[in-house]
Design a protein around this nucleic acid. Structure first.
Length: 864
RNA sequence: GCGGGUGUGGUGAAAUGGUAGACGCGCCGGAUUCAAAAUCCGGUUCCGCAAGGAGUGUCGGUUCGAGUCCGACCACCCGCACCA
C-alpha cells in the first residue's frame, strides 16, 4: 500500500469537502416533519450504528447502499427522509468506565463525534438536523413515556422468571453472554436465578406478527422464514393426567402435544427438571434431587445440548389415562423436556417420536406403534430404533382405529374435551420479551416501588427520568442501585418513602422505535402524529442479516404496541427490507503466528511479505473483517487516500449487494482509476453545451444510442438494487465515449459527446455524488446536480435501428443476421435460411418448423 | 437432523426460457516514453493450424431451445436445533 495518493487530474481531496459544504449550505437533504406538496414521500433508513468510535467497512457498505437509494429516489421526484442517529446505550460504555475510569456518557459522546465526522466525509445525503442518540434524555424520556403507556395498556408486566445470573458481576446476562455456562466477562459459573423482571408482552401479538409476515412482500424470504420459525406456531392439545397419588398437593400433570392421535401409544409422562412436580419429587427423594441438580448444572451451550444423552429419573409417581382406565403410566423427570416450551411436560409415545424412542429404549419402556403406514399389517408393524413419523392409519387405539392422522387428532381432542381432560390449543414458541437489565448505561425504567401502593408510574411531569451522572463503577453490580440517593423517593401516590426501579431497559428497546422518532425528532411527545402518519412505514430499510430476528421482531412489536396505544396507525414499520452481505478480506499471518493488518504486509508478484522485516507471510482465508484476525481495512485511511467516491464506487461494483464482497486493494485502485478517467473524459467536453445540430453522422448517432440505452439500463438496475450492474453500464458508456473520440469529429459529435458525458455525470450522482457535482460544474452548470431530476431516455434512441438475430438449427447457434426492427417474420426467416452456414446445414434436410421470436432468434427444426 | 441459499473463465461476476461469460480485477501483447510510472489501444472459457467442436457442480426430465423451469444427487455457506 502506498501512503500517498496516486497521481490525479481530479483533486478529490479539495472537491469532496467543497461539495459536502455546498449541499449543507443549500439544505439539499432536509426533510419536513410533515411532507408538503404533491411529491410522494420515500423514507429510506439504514440501521443506525453503535458508536464504537470508528466506522468500519460494513458501515461504509450499509450507508453507501442507503445513500444511493436516497439520492436516486430524490432525483426521481420523491421527498426523501434519510436520517441518522446513534444506538448509544449499552455495555461497552460501562466496560470503558470500569477499565479506564471515563464516564460512559463522556466516552459515548466522544465516540459519536468521531464517527459523525467519518460519516460526513462519506458525503451522505442525510438530514443531520434529525440526528439524535438514544442516550439523549430527550429520546429516552420519550421512551419512558411509551413504557408507561404500554404498562397502562397491559403490554408490560412484571413477573418472576429464571435468569442467567452472574454472581461475580452481580448482573443478569443475556443468553449469548453465557459461554459454556460461564459469564463472558467474569468467567464465573452462571446460575439460574428467579428474579422479578419487566416483560414486554410480545406474545399478545404472536398471531398477527406471524400472519402479517405474508404482507411483507419486499422482505427477503429467509428473514420471513426465520421470524416465522422463531414465533413458532404449533397446533395441538393440552391434556391433564390425574396423578394416582397426589404429590405435595399436586393432583395432576398437564402436557402439551401436537400428536393427540397417538395417545394410545403412550408409555410414560416426562417433566422438565424445573417443573414443580420435579421439585416436589426432589423434596422427598434424594435421587430425584441429585438428578434435578445435575440437569441445572448441565452446560447450555450448543455443543453440550448436541451431545447430551437422553437421561431421566423415575419419580415413582404414576398417572391415569383417559381411555385406558385399567392402566397407569410412570412419571419421569427427563433432561430433554424444556420447561420453557408448552407446559414443561410431555407424554411419551416412543413408536412415533425419536426422542421418546431413544428414552424408552434406554430405560426399557414400552414401544407400541399406533400409526401404521399404508401397506403394512397392523399386527406385524413394529418400530426398532427409528420412530415412525410418517402418514398412516391409526391402530391399537380403540375408537380411533382406522382413522387418518388428522381425523384422529380431532377425534382424540373431542373425546378428551368431552371428558374434561383437556382441549385443543395453539402453542407458540415465542416468549415474552424480558427487558430488565441490572445496568447503569441504559434507559431507566420509570416506575417506583411503594410498600403500600405497589408499582407506581413516575408522574409524566417528572419525565424524563434522567440517569444520575455521579456514579461509580468500582464494584460489581448496578451503579444505580449503589447510588446513595437516586433511588430513594416519596411515593407519588401516598407520599410514603419508596424506591425507584433501578433496572434499565434492554438496548433493543431503544432501537425498536427510533425510526418513528426520526419523523419528528423534536416532538414533545414520543412522536408527532401527523409526521408518523405521513412518513411511516419506512419504504426501504437496509442493514445486516444478523438482525433478522430480534431487532426486526422487536421493532414490529413496538410498532403494534404504539398502534394499540394510539401513537401511530401502521402495523408494520418496514415495508421494504434489504439485507446486505458482509465485507470480507484476506487474512495474513506471520511466520511466528501473529495476525497482521493488511498495511503491515507488502505484496509483490503475488508473494506477500511482512513490511517491517521482509519475512514471508501466510495468506489465510477470505473472511469477514474482524479485529481479532486483523483483516480489517480502515475506511478513514481509504477515504483519505482515494476519496469517498472511490470507496463508494468500489463497494457498489463487482458484487450484488446482498452477497459478501471481498475488499481488495487492486479493486479500489481500479475504482480510483475510473474516477480519474471519467474526469478526463469530461474535460474534453468542458464548458457550455454546443447547439443541437441539424443532423448526426452515424458515429454520433451511435453514441447517442449508447447514451440513452445507458439511461434506461442504469435506471432499471437501480430500481432492481443491482448496483453492480449499474456500475458496469456506466463503464460501458465511458468506453463508448472513448471509442467515439477515436472516430473523430463528425457531424453532431460534439453534441453527442457532451450529452454522453453529462448523462454519465447524472447517472453516477447517486453513487459518486462529489464527482457528479464536479463534472456537472465542469460542463458549465452553475446549479447543484443534487437538485437535478433523473435523466429521461429518449425512446426513439433506445429502440434499436437494426437487430442482430441469432439463427439456430435444432436449438444450436449457427450464425447471426442483421435485420431491420420492423422486418416481418417472413423476411427474417428467409434471411436466416439464406445465411451461408445455416444454408449449408439445412441443405438436403426438411425444415419441419420455423420458430421466430421477434427481435431475438430464429430456430429451424429439421427432420431426417 | 430441519430450513434457506449458492455452485458459471485465472478471479469478482453478467445474462425477461432465446447469441453464456457483459463489466471490473489479473494476465499477455502493442502505442506513448531516454526509461519508468501514469495513460491509451488490442487480446484473454477450453480443445483445434483452421473449419469446427465442447462448455454454466453431477445425472436425468420438460421444451423448437435450459445457466435459467422440474426431479434426484454432490459440494460449500448461512440460520435453527431435544420446541413434544
Amino acid at each position: 500500500m502506498n501512503e500517498t495518493s496516486p497521481p490525479a487530474v481530479y483533486d478529490f481531496a479539495s472537491a469532496e469537502p467543497k461539495w459536502q459544504q455546498a449541499w449543507e449550505d443549500a439544505g439539499c437533504f432536509l426533510a419536513d416533519d410533515v411532507p408538503q406538496g404533491a411529491r410522494p414521500k420515500y423514507y429510506v433508513l439504514e440501521m443506525f450504528p453503535y458508536p464504537s468510535g470508528k466506522i468500519h467497512m460494513g458501515h461504509v457498505r450499509n450507508y453507501t447502499l442507503g445513500d444511493v437509494v436516497a439520492r436516486y429516489k430524490r432525483a426521481r421526484g420523491y421527498q426523501v427522509l434519510h436520517p441518522m442517529g446513534w444506538d448509544a446505550f449499552g455495555l461497552p460504555a460501562e466496560n470503558a468506565a470500569r477499565e479506564r475510569g471515563v464516564h460512559p456518557g463522556v466516552w459515548t459522546r466522544s465516540n459519536i463525534a468521531a464517527m459523525r465526522a467519518e460519516l460526513r466525509r462519506m458525503g451522505l445525503a442525510i438530514d443531520w438536523r434529525r440526528e439524535f442518540a438514544t442516550c439523549d434524555p430527550a429520546y429516552y424520556g420519550q421512551q419512558q413515556r411509551l413504557f408507561l403507556a404500554f404498562l397502562q395498556a397491559g403490554l408490560v408486566e412484571r413477573r418472576e422468571s429464571f435468569v442467567n445470573w452472574d454472581p461475580v458481576d452481580g448482573t443478569v446476562l443475556a443468553n449469548e453472554q453465557v459461554i459454556d455456562g460461564r459469564g463472558w466477562r467474569s468467567g464465573a459459573l452462571v446460575e439460574k436465578k428467579k428474579l422479578s423482571q419487566w416483560f414486554f408482552r410480545i406474545t399478545k401479538f404472536a398471531p398477527e406478527l406471524l400472519a402479517s409476515l405474508d404482507t411483507l412482500k419486499r422482505w427477503p424470504e429467509r428473514v420471513r422464514v426465520m421470524q416465522a420459525k422463531w414465533i413458532g406456531r404449533s397446533e395441538g392439545a393440552r391434556l391433564r393426567f390425574p396423578l394416582v397419588r397426589e404429590e405435595a398437593g399436586i393432583a395432576e400433570v398437564e402436557v402439551f402435544t401436537t400428536r393427540p392421535d397417538t395417545l394410545f401409544g403412550m408409555s410414560f409422562v416426562a417433566v422438565a427438571a424445573e417443573h414443580p412436580l420435579a421439585a416436589a419429587a426432589a423434596a422427598r427423594d434424594a435421587g430425584a434431587a441429585a438428578f434435578v441438580a445435575a440437569c441445572r448444572g448441565m452446560g447450555t451451550s450448543e455443543v453440550a445440548l448436541e451431545t447430551a444423552e437422553k437421561q431421566g429419573y423415575d419419580t415413582g409417581l404414576t398417572v391415569r389415562h383417559p381411555f385406558l382406565p385399567d392402566r397407569v403410566f410412570p412419571v419421569w423427570i427427563a433432561n430433554f423436556v424444556l420447561m420453557e416450551y408448552g407446559t414443561g411436560a410431555i407424554f411419551g409415545c416412543p413408536a412415533h417420536d425419536q426422542r421418546d424412542l431413544d428414552f424408552a429404549r434406554k430405560y426399557g419402556l414400552d414401544v407400541l406403534p399406533v400409526v401404521v403406514p399404508a401397506g403394512e399389517d397392523a399386527a406385524a408393524f413394529s418400530v426398532a430404533d427409528r420412530a415412525y413419523d410418517g402418514p398412516g392409519l391409526i391402530a391399537n387405539s380403540g375408537f380411533l382405529d382406522g382413522l387418518g392422522i388428522e381425523d384422529a387428532k380431532r377425534a382424540a381432542i373431542d373425546a378428551v374435551a368431552a371428558r374434561g381432560w383437556g382441549a385443543g390449543v395453539v402453542n407458540w414458541r415465542l416468549r415474552d420479551w424480558g427487558v430488565s437489565r441490572q445496568r447503569y448505561w441504559g434507559c431507566p425504567i420509570p416506575v417506583i416501588h411503594c410498600g403500600t401502593c405497589g408499582i407506581v408510574s413516575v408522574p409524566d411531569s417528572e419525565l424524563p427520568l434522567v440517569l444520575p451522572d455521579d456514579v461509580t463503577f468500582d464494584r460489581p453490580g448496578n451503579p444505580l442501585d449503589h447510588h446513595p440517593t437516586w433511588k430513594h423517593v416519596a411515593c407519588p401516590t401516598c407520599g410514603a418513602a419508596a424506591t425507584r426501579e433501578t433496572d434499565t431497559c434492554d438496548t433493543f428497546v431503544d432501537s425498536s422505535w427510533y425510526f418513528a422518532r426520526f419523523c419528528s425528532p423534536g416532538s414533545a411527545m414520543p412522536v408527532q402524529r401527523a409526521a408518523v402518519d405521513s412518513w411511516l412505514p419506512v419504504d426501504q430499510y437496509i442493514g445486516g442479516i444478523e438482525h433478522a430476528i430480534l431487532h426486526l421482531l422487536y421493532a414490529r412489536f413496538a410498532t403494534r404496541a404504539m398502534q394499540a396505544t394510539g401513537y401511530l396507525d401502521v402495523a408494520e414499520p418496514f415495508a421494504g427490507l434489504f439485507t446486505q452481505g458482509m465485507v470480507t478480506h484476506e487474512s495474513y499471518k506471520s511466520a511466528d503466528g501473529r495476525w497482521l493488518y493488511p498495511e503491515e504486509t507488502v505484496t509483490s508478484d503475488g508473494v506477500v511479505t511482512e513490511r517491517a522485516n521482509g519475512a514471508p507471510v501466510a495468506v489465510g482465508r477470505v473472511e469477514a473483517m474482524s479485529k481479532s484476525r486483523r483483516n480489517t481495512v480502515d475506511p478513514g485511511a481509504i477515504i483519505g487516500r482515494y476519496g469517498a467516491d472511490t470507496a463508494r464506487w468500489f463497494i457498489l461494483s463487482d458484487n450484488p449487494p446482498e452477497r459478501d464482497i471481498q475488499w481488495t486493494e487492486s479493486g479500489v485502485v481500479g475504482a480510483y482509476r475510473f474516477v480519474q478517467r471519467l474526469y478526463r473524459l469530461a474535460e474534453a467536453s468542458a464548458g457550455s453545451a454546443p447547439g443541437r445540430p441539424a443532423r448526426f453522422a452515424d458515429a454520433a448517432q451511435a453514441l447517442r444510442r449508447v447514451t440513452h440505452r445507458t439511461i434506461a439500463s442504469v435506471t432499471q438496475a437501480l430500481d432492481d438494487f443491482a448496483f453492480n450492474v449499474a456500475v458496469a453500464r456506466v463503464y460501458e458508456l465511458a468506453g463508448a465515449v472513448a471509442e467515439a473520440d477515436r472516430e473523430g469529429g463528425t457531424d453532431g459529435m460534439a453534441f453527442a459527446r457532451r450529452e454522453a458525458v453529462e448523462v454519465a455525470a447524472r447517472l453516477i450522482a447517486p453513487m459518486m455524488p462529489h464527482l457528479g457535482e464536479e463534472l456537472f460544474t465542469l460542463l458549465g452548470h452553475d446549479s447543484l446536480l443534487a437538485d437535478e431530476a433523473w435523466p429521461e431516455a429518449d425512446p426513439s434512441l433506445v429502440a434499436a435501428q437494426s437487430l442482430v438475430i441469432a439463427v439456430q438449427v435444432m436449438g444450436k447457434l449457427r450464425g447471426t443476421i442483421a435485420v431491420a426492427p420492423d422486418a416481418t417474420a417472413e423476411t427474417v426467416t428467409e434471411a436466416a435460411e439464406a445465411e451461408p452456414n445455416v444454408a449449408r446445414l439445412l441443405e438436403g434436410k426438411r425444415v419441419v418448423k420455423r420458430i421466430y421470436v421477434p427481435g431475438r432468434i430464429v430456430n429451424f427444426v429439421v427432420a431426417g
